[in-house]
């Protein structure tokens, strides 16, 4: 049921991109959520915590928060989805595994790939389900997190 031009993206790996996790970006992110935990903005408080410094809320890996906002894989696949007539695109969900905290000042290396493209018969016709997986390493080469985002085209 998945058109070939969409299937072609399965397994597509994008070049890793670097994200600096800035303190101000963490603060703005927490503020936008309405999250007033001092670990995310109060240097004095955070330096006395077990982290020794400001950390990012889980799920924030430096701007931007979308898994693969500017990767060729996601943009290419989204464009192909629209061209194939699936122009109504919705976010389906997010799954994480966390291994290490993200600290202010970290430099993360994000490696996105298109994990799968599948089809499902929904109430309003065929839905195309796109799964993107991104792994994040820190500047020491340690695995920080793995994120899987699902986008649905209808």
């Amino acid at each position: 049921m998945v058109p070939n031009e969409l299937k072609a993206y399965i397994g597509k790996i994008d070049p890793p991109h670097v994200r600096e996790v800035e303190r101000g970006a963490i603060r703005r992110y927490a503020d936008a959520v309405g999250n007033d935990n001092p670990l995310y903005y109060d240097i004095e408080y955070a330096s006395e915590s077990k982290y020794g410094t400001i950390i990012a809320p889980p799920g924030f890996f430096g701007w931007s928060s979308a898994t693969v906002p500017s990767s060729e894989g996601i943009i290419g696949l989204m464009t192909a989805l629209i061209n194939a007539g699936y122009y109504r695109i919705l976010d389906g969900g997010m799954t994480y595994e966390f291994f290490l905290p993200v600290r202010a000042g970290d430099t993360l290396i994000a490696s996105p790939k298109v994990k799968d493209v599948s089809a499902k018969e929904g109430k309003s016709g065929i839905m195309i389900i796109c799964e993107f997986e991104t792994t994040y390493l820190n500047q020491n080469g340690d695995l920080v997190a793995r994120a899987s985002q699902t986008l649905i085209g209808r």
Binding site: S49, P58, D91, G92, G93, M94, E97, F98
Partner: peptide, 17 residues
């Protein structure tokens, strides 16, 4: 994270819209 406190660690998370 509010509930688990500073000493807690979130290992896995998943949500569906």
């Amino acid at each position: 994270t509010n509930w688990m406190g500073d000493e807690g660690f979130m290992k896995k998370f998943s949500c569906q819209y």
